[in-house]
Computed example of a mutant assay.
Amino acid sequence: MSDARDPGDPGDPLSPAARRLCDVMAAGFPGPGDPAALRAAAVPGPPGPALASVRDAVAAGVPVRIYDPAPGAAGRPLVVYLHGGGWVMCGLDTHDATCRKLAAASGAVLVSVGYRLAPEHPWPAARDDALGVLLWARAGAEALGCDPGRVVVAGDSSGGNLAAVTALRAPGQVAGQLLVYPPLDAAMDSASVTAYGRGYFHTAAHMAWYWEQYGGDPEHPHVSPLRAPAEGLSGLPRTLIVLADCDLLRDEGLAYARRLARAGVDCEVRLYPGVFHGFLGLPLPAGRAALAGAAAWLAATP
């Protein structure tokens, strides 16, 4: 039975445009259980803007794509970007347009990370790839026209989890973390899981399966950053957490923001109403606003 609603349903918390897009995306998306089918469905969207330089490379043994909107400039922020996809799917190509938009709008050099995927490469493979690229980027920041003191780690969905974990593992090495609707607790026991676990594209069944494929101890803070000890949070850098109101992961992001604030971290939350998980960069007003706001935040990296 379909969970789709009428886009004009006054009881639907999604905007009419978001409901239409959500239902179209959900209709063509496989259920959990088959990595190959999910990967085949995760195709790139419309292309992003042209940039002065986009090149593929290998960093710390990991495939990366480097976006530079202004070669020859110096002292810019350097963003290490970790794509979403439940640690199972997606890669450099699926997130190419988002990375181009962020680089173009922020003026930062952006390094997109093609980390190893589960279930072939379970935890800690992706975690270790993320840290390896971060350390590579920081060491080579000046050669990329960037300030090594302005390195930011960023990611969406499972990539947001990896970004949060990388910041925990590299105290003093990053100037900021941008976390876009990240999964932060493998327990999946928040109220938003119950409220938005079906009918909003990203389902609780999918998320539970992604956690199973990824593996690791669900109590470990490098799996579930929300469970990190308080003393490990106090040294984290300025943080922006971008959330969708109609997302099963919403409450995990809010809970992490509260923990960071209690630890004295400069943490900002931007919660967008009427949209669902994955909205960043989608052809919705909130998606465009979130991407522009994230780019401005990156550009302001001190």
Rank of each mutant, 00 (worst) to 15 (best):
G107W: 12
A36Q: 02
A137P: 13
V193K: 00
R39G: 13
L249R: 02
P182C: 02
D9S: 06
E142L: 08
L168H: 11
D251W: 09
A208V: 01
A257W: 04
G132K: 06
A27R: 10
G91T: 02
P47Q: 02
G114D: 14
M207K: 01
D129E: 07
G197S: 01
Y196L: 04
D96A: 04
G85K: 07
L134S: 06
P44Y: 01
V265H: 04
C146Y: 10
A175G: 15
L178W: 14
A57V: 00
V111P: 03
L280V: 14
D93N: 09
A299T: 09
A294F: 03
D9M: 06
P49H: 04
D93Q: 12
D185Y: 12
G31E: 12
P69M: 04
L134H: 07
A170Y: 02
D93S: 10
W209K: 07
H220D: 15
G159F: 05
H222G: 08
G235E: 10
V64F: 10
R19L: 04
R138V: 15
D189R: 12
A108L: 06
Y272D: 12
E142D: 11
P7I: 00
L291A: 03
T94S: 14
R138I: 11
G278S: 12
A187S: 14
G264C: 11
M188E: 14
G253K: 09
G31A: 11
G235L: 12
V242I: 11
Y81S: 05
P46E: 02
P46G: 00
A230M: 06
A37L: 04
A57P: 00
D128I: 03
A263Y: 10
A186I: 14
P124H: 09
P124A: 00
T301K: 01
A230W: 04
A208L: 05
V79D: 07
Y81I: 00
A204E: 15
D128M: 04
V62M: 07
A141R: 08
R169C: 09
G197Y: 03
A186T: 06
A103F: 10
D266H: 13
T203M: 12
D189S: 14
A299Y: 08
R270W: 15
G145T: 13
A130I: 06
L271R: 04
P71S: 00
S158F: 03
V275E: 09
A154M: 05
A195H: 02
A163P: 15
A108C: 14
R39T: 03
G274I: 03
R100M: 06
A299C: 12
M89L: 15
Q177S: 09
P237I: 06
A118F: 10
A40Q: 01
Q173S: 10
G61L: 10
V64Y: 05
V165T: 13
T301E: 10
P69G: 06
V265T: 06
S190N: 05
D9H: 10
H121P: 06
E231P: 07
R259L: 13
A257G: 14
R238T: 11
S192N: 09
C146F: 09
G199C: 05
V24N: 01
V174L: 08
L179A: 03
P7W: 03
L291G: 02
L248D: 11
P7Q: 05
V88I: 15
G85L: 09
G84T: 00
V153L: 11
A204L: 14
A74V: 13
G132P: 12
A208I: 01
V109L: 05
P35L: 01
L51H: 08
A50V: 05
L38N: 00
D9F: 08
L291D: 03
